[in-house]
Computed example of a mutant assay.
Amino acid sequence: MPSRLNPEDQKRVDQYLSAPQHQVERQPFRPWLLLLLAVVVVIGLGLLSRLLARLVL
């Protein structure tokens, strides 16, 4: 896909993206870990709400 920028602007964009602060290594995305975290939070909040209900009632 050709760039819609003129060559001067494209050069500035390339320089910006090649700066060291934009070259951060990231860990791979793990959807199962995110799902596990969401389940743990939901269960934890459910248990907390049951505890609070027993204390109030």
Score class of each variant (00 low, 15 high):
residue 30 R to L: 15
residue 35 L to N: 06
residue 51 L to E: 02
residue 34 L to A: 14
residue 25 E to N: 04
residue 16 Y to R: 11
residue 17 L to R: 12
residue 18 S to W: 01
residue 27 Q to H: 06
residue 11 K to C: 08
residue 45 L to S: 07
residue 52 L to D: 03
residue 42 V to R: 00
residue 38 A to E: 00
residue 24 V to F: 08
residue 33 L to N: 05
residue 3 S to I: 01
residue 32 W to P: 02
residue 46 G to P: 01
residue 3 S to Y: 00
residue 42 V to P: 00
residue 4 R to E: 06
residue 25 E to S: 12
residue 54 R to L: 09
residue 51 L to A: 11
residue 46 G to V: 03
residue 40 V to T: 14
residue 52 L to W: 05
residue 50 R to F: 07
residue 50 R to V: 13
residue 42 V to C: 10
residue 57 L to F: 10
residue 5 L to H: 00
residue 9 D to P: 00
residue 47 L to F: 10
residue 55 L to S: 08
residue 1 M to T: 12
residue 50 R to G: 06
residue 45 L to G: 01
residue 27 Q to T: 13
residue 14 D to A: 13
residue 1 M to F: 05
residue 48 L to F: 10
residue 42 V to W: 02
residue 38 A to K: 03
residue 54 R to D: 04
residue 52 L to K: 01
residue 39 V to Y: 00
residue 40 V to H: 01
residue 17 L to W: 12
residue 9 D to K: 14
residue 42 V to F: 03
residue 47 L to N: 08
residue 40 V to N: 00
residue 2 P to R: 10
residue 31 P to T: 11
residue 28 P to F: 05
residue 19 A to Q: 14
residue 8 E to V: 04
residue 24 V to T: 14
residue 30 R to T: 15
residue 7 P to K: 07
residue 6 N to K: 10
residue 43 I to V: 08
residue 5 L to K: 06
residue 8 E to M: 06
residue 1 M to W: 09
residue 11 K to D: 15
residue 10 Q to R: 15
residue 3 S to L: 04
residue 55 L to I: 07
residue 47 L to I: 14
residue 56 V to Q: 14
residue 27 Q to W: 07
residue 46 G to A: 13
residue 4 R to Q: 03
residue 13 V to A: 12
residue 53 A to L: 12
residue 10 Q to L: 15
residue 43 I to S: 05
residue 30 R to D: 15
residue 8 E to K: 09
residue 9 D to V: 12
residue 3 S to T: 07
residue 53 A to K: 04
residue 24 V to L: 12
residue 57 L to C: 05
residue 27 Q to R: 15
residue 49 S to N: 01
residue 22 H to K: 07
residue 53 A to M: 09
residue 36 L to Y: 00
residue 5 L to S: 05
residue 18 S to K: 07
residue 4 R to M: 06
residue 10 Q to F: 10
residue 28 P to A: 08
residue 31 P to V: 09
residue 10 Q to W: 12
residue 17 L to V: 11
residue 28 P to W: 02
residue 48 L to N: 02
residue 50 R to C: 03
residue 52 L to Y: 00
residue 41 V to S: 05
residue 45 L to F: 09
residue 9 D to H: 12
residue 40 V to C: 07
residue 41 V to C: 13
residue 55 L to W: 06
residue 40 V to Y: 00
residue 3 S to R: 01
residue 17 L to A: 11
residue 35 L to G: 08
residue 25 E to M: 02
residue 40 V to Q: 07
residue 43 I to R: 00
residue 49 S to I: 04
residue 20 P to N: 11
residue 12 R to Y: 02
residue 45 L to Q: 08
residue 37 L to A: 13
residue 31 P to R: 09
residue 26 R to T: 14
residue 49 S to L: 12
residue 8 E to R: 08
residue 14 D to F: 05
residue 57 L to K: 14
residue 49 S to W: 02
residue 28 P to I: 07
residue 8 E to S: 11
residue 14 D to L: 15
residue 21 Q to H: 08
residue 48 L to R: 02
residue 11 K to M: 15
residue 31 P to Y: 06
residue 18 S to Y: 01
residue 47 L to P: 02
residue 46 G to K: 00
residue 16 Y to N: 03
residue 15 Q to S: 09
residue 16 Y to C: 10
residue 2 P to I: 09
residue 33 L to H: 05
